[in-house]
Design a protein around this nucleic acid. Structure first.
Lengths: 234, 234
DNA sequence: CAGTGGTCTAGACCACTTC
DNA sequence: AAGTGGTCTAGACCACTGA
């Protein structure tokens, strides 16, 4: 664990433990430097990390203040802000519908940057949140990167498997979202009606070295599709 | 203009000008330091800024690479990634429906952190993108911070007015979104039908010093509600 | 004008990738 | 082993806030 990450975690825990409210002031840089026995830059880097996560905001000439979101029951759209902790606060389970090795369609081949004759893992799941249908998810994994998947991995967390068991490092993602109407087949999976609203999210996930390994298309139940984003900078 | 911001802009222009593609390599840190006659930290800071904006990604031990989004016709959800440049690429206009001074409702008072007897500017607008109805927007501005608004400001850019004319600095925002069905009144504004899908986005905007000055509720036309996010970190 | 955060430097050392 | 990005330090100086 790097020093600045460790410091960030400790400051965040401190805020949590003391139930600090929006606008409450944290100790000044000078104090933090002494407390953590480190240089100014390292503290600044830790604080920048917390600012990016939406935990604090810094005001030049004034101080460092706590920032807190106000609503629960909303899911964080940028999981990097919450280090996956956010989804853990909900009880999310998966039901596997299909899991097989396929050749990619043209769209999939393009998004995963593979040839049409390479193998792809196709995973189709329904995900539940607190027992309600959250979304229908179709994912395509580049088999050259994720050589093996099974039912057990699919019903728990594929990403955790990729990071822990395959020790690959996930880097960044492109996400595209739009709103539309459910077709009958989608509706039946989500226990809704054809023509009901849907939120579709297409994502491409990359390893830290820039290789795309997962293209996924997720159709959300509009009753559960509640997201928040803590924006930094306008 | 700060040095690291200037450098970031120049690197971004370079990428743009040379039409560099996803995965193309930029010069190494050493070269950039020499080229911009500056220290390593400053270059690193400029690159971190570009990484946060989704323009590049850095791979330790390997290099600095260009990142490019693939789809057009999608609106950037995090305008901080694009410095407002993103919306400028579309032709967006506004039609003012209402503009008046009111007392806040309880919800508004809470979100803007004002008392129930303080004055609020209420602004109701329809926004168009390339001539099509994009959204119906209701905004509430704290009059103590934004003391004056008129039709002209409202039909152009209220935020630009706040930053330029009032010289206030906008800091960060909380955004909450969910999907639902249009009620008849909303539908008529958006030239859609009652029961059609809608995306609702509630935002609270804060100045850099943490004071909330704008609470807005935006109902998007589902035909135009196409957003993208360039995620960094998972 | 004192207090506080932000930028910038020069350099040491570390961790990862690539050959 | 060489190349490349990442962390960390110590300190100078700058820019903004608020009493």
């Amino acid at each position: 664990m790097l020093k600045y990450q460790q410091i960030a975690i400790e400051i965040e825990s401190y805020i949590e433990k003391h139930q600090m409210q929006q606008g409450e002031k944290l100790p000044v840089l000078e104090s933090l430097m002494k407390e953590f026995k480190t240089s100014k830059s390292t503290i600044v880097k830790a604080l920048d990390l917390l600012e990016k996560k939406g935990i604090i905001f810094q005001v030049r000439g004034s101080g460092i203040f706590v920032r807190r979101k106000k609503r629960n029951n909303y899911i964080n759209l940028l999981s990097n802000q919450g280090f996956q902790k956010d989804l853990d606060q909900f009880n999310i389970t998966s039901e596997m519908l299909e899991l097989e090795i396929q050749k990619p369609t043209e769209t999939v081949a393009q998004n995963l940057h593979v040839d049409m004759d390479q193998d792809i893992y196709y995973v189709k799941r329904i995900r539940y949140i607190e027992g309600n249908t959250l979304c229908l998810e179709e994912s395509f994994f580049n088999k050259a990167i994720v050589p093996y998947l099974n039912n057990e991995i699919g019903t728990s967390s594929i990403f955790r498997y990729i990071e822990d068991a395959l020790s690959l490092k996930i880097g960044f993602s492109d996400m595209y979202m739009h709103v539309g109407k459910l077709i009958d087949q989608e509706a039946s999976y989500l226990q809704l009606k054809g023509g009901d609203p849907k939120l579709t999210m297409e994502s491409i996930f990359y390893l830290t070295n820039g290789t795309p390994f997962d293209y996924s298309k997720v159709t959300y139940n509009y009753n559960q599709a509640q997201f928040y984003i803590l924006g930094t900078g306008i």
